[in-house]
Design a protein around this nucleic acid. Structure first.
Lengths: 102, 102
DNA sequence: TCGATACTTCTAGTTTTATAGAAATATAAG
DNA sequence: CTTATATTTCTATAAAACTAGAAGTATCGA
């Protein structure tokens, strides 16, 4: 996880429609959901949804896999966890370094 | 923490200049840093920095406090922690509900 | 009070992003 | 092979965000 990956991730999460898509998938668990169901649950029109889903996938927050004529989306839990951890990863290191020096 | 607060927070984190400002403050610890030092460390011009700092504060990610002619910024660790926890808060609840029903 | 310092607000041009209808693609079923 | 389903890509428009110089505000020291 570098800073570019982190900001891509947070930026992707930082819009209400996209975050609600992500939440629907996080709730759904490992099996994921087809795009159509995500559309029903969020009320986002198909073409707008495709756009947001593409951004979420590009940021590595979700994965997409074709199953017949549906495309099943799944939350990428590992990446989400890594992002959550990244926020405070370097908490207070300046202070710690000062203490080391002393 | 509601969805609007969460997306405001992630959106604020989701730009490289802002995230680097936040990181500088997270590293700095509770004492925080004056805006000028943040500018030195990030290389962001003053007016651009003021803009980003305002957004970070509006999202609740940092606090600003005047000390003489400097304005000291501090990371809001509680809010950052809450945001980190919010990402996976409702992980897999759909599955759990199914299991409850069964 | 005058000037220097620290920062913000104003402003304007540029770039991104969002939205959603219409058309296109991929798969499946009859 | 034709039609229906599921989703994407194309397109255009509108809205928002980014950047940074210039001008303004607040505070301190001489």
């Amino acid at each position: 996880m570098d800073i570019a990956a982190a900001t891509d991730g947070f930026s992707a999460m930082g819009s209400q429609p996209r975050f609600s898509v992500l939440q629907v998938l996080v709730k759904a668990g490992r099996d994921g959901l087809p795009t159509g169901v995500i559309g029903e649950r969020t009320g986002i029109p198909a073409s707008t949804l495709a756009h947001h889903v593409k951004l979420l996938a590009a940021a590595g927050l979700i994965h997409q896999e074709r199953q017949g004529r549906m495309i099943v989306c799944r939350a990428n839990y590992d990446h989400l966890e890594a992002l959550a951890g990244y926020i405070l990863k370097e908490c207070c290191v300046d202070k710690l370094q000062k203490e080391e020096a002393a």
